[in-house]
Nucleic acid binder design. Structure first.
Lengths: 202, 202
DNA sequence: TAATCATTCGACCACTGGTCGAACGGCTGT
DNA sequence: ACAGCCGTTCGACCAGTGGTCGAATGATTA
């Protein structure tokens, strides 16, 4: 049995059970059924456990995103919509977020945001590129534009940084759709999906 | 003597002296020359001190921004350029940033970014609104669009989160200018100032 | 003078992330 | 069979944390 994974899974289980605030090293050890000292035989620090956890959790999700995006014979707009729905269901993990949004975990929160940004931006850039080839978009710098697009999700829409009401989020999503429809010269209304799914759910 | 300010100033002093790691409540009390218990007479929690500190630090700076923007008889594009230069020289204070970007100060860093965002977004929104009235821009939701604009500066361009090369920053600034020129239907090249000043300095 | 009440304090609390030396148990070489 | 080794396991222990509490102070009021 791989003890490293045992520890990671124990922490993940605690986070999934919304025990974010009580996810101390002692608790992780208890959950894993091992002594606290042993934790530090496999990891240098608690941060290192969480780093491994984030990598473990996001690796599969990003791989899945890439797969979803690359396999189908759909256009750039449909891909973007698909990625967006996968992002909402998959990437945003409430169990991890409860831990990340604790004040004391701001550093690792920031790191996670940067990681999500770095992992997703090439994928979004690729979609923008597809769109240009399909004459759906006009975009000189797909990579940079993708980064600007993702900055909103990583910062403005992060519930650990801001606490917007549903209505406020809706207005921001609409503005985002408008901005990028114009900015990418995309067909009018083609980015409506950014707020329509959210509009339904509230 | 206002004890609340005394406490805030004590904490601010510790942070400025790069004592971020030793900025415990006990240390703050010692620095302020009062008992630890008294801290909790004026603040509910350490977080609340953080909040007050961030507000205290940025209040004056934002007020100055507002003044600069409101007094002159210049159009929206010129105001935006003016704000942008003030932002670069004034809001981004390297001596403050150096401690904000320490790992241990990630929490206050995040709060500062949110605070800057919240304080600046109405100002930028007002400028966008001016632009609409002056037939320079087309913008349905100035407030939300301003927030999207500022998200980039607070997140993507924060040197504490990402370490881009000068060349990468230049490309991102160009993409930002392109995006918002199209997104706001602003005159072609009217947002060049976003990257031109940076281009000169490298 | 007595009573009230905001204010001040530091010993104290439960808890944290992290350390350490003792101990266990399965190898090896002799 | 024995000794020595070493990877592994453990929980008592450590310094330090944010936060609590009841006692003490001193000014104001009745």
């Amino acid at each position: 049995m791989d003890k490293r994974n045992l520890i990671i899974e124990a922490m993940y289980k605690l986070l999934k059970e919304d025990k974010g605030a009580f996810c101390s090293v002692s608790e992780i050890a208890k959950e894993a059924g091992i002594g606290k000292g042993s934790i530090y035989y496999y990891f240098k620090s608690k941060d290192e456990i969480f780093d491994a956890l984030v990598e473990h959790v996001y690796y599969e999700k990003i791989r899945h995103c890439k797969e979803v995006i690359s396999c189908s014979h759909i256009n750039a707009l449909e891909k973007l919509q698909l990625l967006f729905s996968v992002y909402g269901q998959y990437i945003i993990d409430p169990s991890i977020d409860s831990y990340l949004h604790l004040q004391q975990n701001a550093a690792i929160h920031q790191k996670s945001l940067a990681q999500i940004h770095n992992l997703l931006s090439p994928i979004v850039a690729e979609i923008f590129n597809n769109g240009v080839n399909e004459n759906l978009f006009i975009c000189e710098s797909p990579q940079e534009t993708a980064e600007l697009f993702l900055s909103s999700f990583c910062f403005l829409f992060d519930p650990g940084i801001f606490s917007w009401s549903d209505n406020q989020i809706l207005k921001k999503l609409k503005a985002l759709a408008d901005l990028f429809e114009s900015g990418l010269s995309a067909p009018k209304g083609s980015l409506q999906f950014l707020y329509q799914s959210f509009q339904k759910q509230i």
